[in-house]
Write a protein that binds this DNA or RNA. Structure first.
Lengths: 226, 226
DNA sequence: TGGTGTGAAATGTTTCACAGCC
DNA sequence: GGCTGTGAAACATTTCACACCA
């Protein structure tokens, strides 16, 4: 549950807002001006009741009997997501993944600007990526302050993620996106989102194992006619 | 809720198993042989009651008054996650991100083997990455069959993700990890996990906006003495 | 004694179903 | 007539608190 202004919005709802926004932008791109909860829901991969409930936490944006105005709903969700103000972003750890994330081109279109790249490896420091020079992580405090960074993407090796995160937090950053497979121990007011590719694959593997167990079981229960 | 064999395990629990496994492997690396629910929970970033409850869905692995044997719990969770059997993996879309994912070195250590890279771009096709040659996506059906691929990582542009996913599913693949920002429409028995970097940043931006609104409000409620 | 395993309570989320409005 | 907005019900998850046992 997250409080914003007067209202409180479920965490699960917030996690879905980006999907809705994406679907709305697709619709706008197709020239559609008005949509319905069922259309928007299908494009977002959720149920229509869920979508309506989610929006109802934020306010009331549709017209009964008609639907939602694509343009105005889109800009409302954008502003709810805080995409009106600019978010200045730094990436710490410019290995394979950090490099790929630096070259991701969608930042500016979504209200983010990438303003710094940092790494500890002398081979990487000084290289250029995405129009920025990679700086040494020793200068982290200075760089974050100078560039007024408010969000950090951590793509360092797991072993140093905790210590880098602490330094980042000490600089006043309160939002971190972490790609290292570690559970960061940070003050409660710091928001950490973690993306763990290996973990996702393991979850898929669990499903695969469950499916295998399931079909083995049903094969036993209802043996195939020979 | 996921059924596996006789028991049913909450989805949320499954999503945490990789964290526990990682923490256990860290412990094993440190030479620790026995741990407690509170230690393991802290390292995994969850509460100790939650950890015990999660494990209780899978069975009963600890010793009252003592704790858990690191080695045996670790191998139990590994096998529950289906990491005993080999999972053969293909990456479709070898752009920035796909390339970075190909070079990720942790697959084999976790029971996955990367066996194919596919892309539609003639410039990329034929290049080598991670010891594999990138093949043309036209040959997708043949390659997936020949290499017995059971899991696919989709890192294509959003526009083609749906159509590629359908071809992949037609080849019998039932587990997909998708990095494209789209809601794939696929049969119910296909498990899709999505990772959306831009979406994660947007969620962080929402938290930032909530924080800003909060402090603006409290500044108004309790105006600073002048 | 100390830490697991687990019912039961509290909390959070999704789904249902329909009143209300265009 | 059709679609939104929303209480209330159903469901899922987390937390509590304590029985149980090495």
């Amino acid at each position: 549950m997250i409080e914003i202004g007067e209202v409180t919005v479920p965490t699960a709802t917030v996690a879905r807002l980006p999907f809705y926004l994406r679907a709305l932008r697709d619709l706008a791109g197709e020239g559609v001006e008005v949509t319905s909860s069922s259309d928007l829901a299908e494009r977002s991969g959720v149920g229509s009741a869920q979508l309506r409930k989610d929006l109802s936490y934020l306010g009331s944006f549709g017209t009964r009997g008609v639907g939602y105005d694509v343009e105005s709903l889109s800009s409302y969700i954008s502003s709810a997501l805080g995409l009106g103000s600019e978010h200045r972003l730094a990436i710490v750890g410019v290995g394979n993944l950090g490099h790929a994330l630096a070259n991701y081109s969608g930042y500016s279109a979504r209200g983010f600007s990438l303003v710094a790249l940092l790494d500890a490896d002398p081979v990487v420091v000084g290289q250029e990526a995405a129009g920025l020079e990679v700086e040494h992580v020793d200068a982290l405090e200075r760089v974050l302050a100078e560039r007024q960074v408010s969000m950090v993407i951590l793509a360092t090796p797991g072993g140093v993620a905790q210590q880098v995160a602490e330094r980042v937090v000490a600089c006043g950053v309160r939002e971190i996106l972490c790609f290292s497979p570690v559970a960061l121990q940070l003050p409660d007011d710091v928001v950490v989102r973690s993306v763990d590719v290996a973990g996702e694959l393991q979850i898929l593997a669990f499903h695969a194992a469950a499916r295998a167990a399931q079909s083995a079981q049903s094969a036993q229960a209802v043996p195939p006619a020979v």
